[in-house]
Simulated assay, not measured.
Amino acid sequence: MTDASVRKSVTVEAPIAKAFTVFTQDFDGWWPRNHKIGEGDLKQAVLEGKEGGRWYEIDTDGSECEWGRVLAWEPPTRLVLAWQIDATWKFDPQLVTEVEIRFIPEGPGRTRVELEHRDLDRFGEAQDQTRAAFDSPGGWSGLLESFAQQATA
């Protein structure tokens, strides 16, 4: 068994309010098209900006695939998302792991973004393989790099 969390961070040349806005309101602009769970091609990645909101995908065939919900909405410093996608990359309403994103100012035009995906032990026997996927270059670090490119553009 490994640590039940994956932690990643990135620093962007953007004020905290812009970093939060790009991460949330411009979510579709930086979320990679190959990070999806639906059968069709990803048309839009949606993050509803409120506690209790959903985050999900809309595919080119019009179908929606749930990813989870917004557990905490504290602009511009903190966001917590429920990740409800299982180890086979399918939505599971019974599974809830948490993705917390913190936005920390490092000056007027610079923000450190720290991400922690926790409660990975809830994946049971698949926790080590799932953690490895989240911890891989194609996992959270790659997603944060994609976000960073958009935030500094």
Rank of each mutant, 00 (worst) to 15 (best):
Q94E: 14
L95K: 05
L95G: 07
L95R: 09
L95N: 02
L95H: 09
V96W: 01
V96P: 00
V96Q: 14
T97P: 04
T97E: 05
T97R: 08
E98Y: 06
V99L: 15
V99P: 03
V99S: 02
V99M: 12
E100V: 12
I101Y: 00
R102G: 04
R102L: 14
R102Y: 02
F103D: 01
I104E: 15
I104H: 07
P105W: 05
P105A: 15
P105E: 12
P105G: 08
P105V: 07
E106N: 10
E106S: 09
G107F: 08
P108V: 07
P108M: 10
P108D: 13
G109T: 08
G109I: 08
G109V: 03
G109L: 15
R110D: 01
R110M: 12
R110E: 12
R110W: 08
T111F: 05
R112C: 03
R112Y: 13
R112Q: 13
V113L: 05
V113K: 02
V113E: 01
E114P: 02
E114V: 07
E114K: 11
L115D: 02
L115H: 03
L115Q: 03
L115M: 15
L115T: 01
L115R: 00
E116C: 06
E116D: 08
E116G: 05
E116T: 12
H117M: 05
H117G: 02
H117I: 03
H117L: 01
H117S: 02
H117W: 04
R118C: 10
R118T: 14
D119M: 06
D119G: 02
D121W: 05
R122L: 09
R122Q: 14
R122Y: 01
F123Q: 06
F123M: 07
F123D: 05
G124H: 04
G124A: 07
G124N: 14
G124K: 06
E125T: 09
E125S: 15
E125F: 06
E125D: 15
E125L: 14
A126E: 14
A126I: 01
Q127W: 04
Q127A: 12
Q127N: 10
D128P: 01
D128E: 13
D128Y: 03
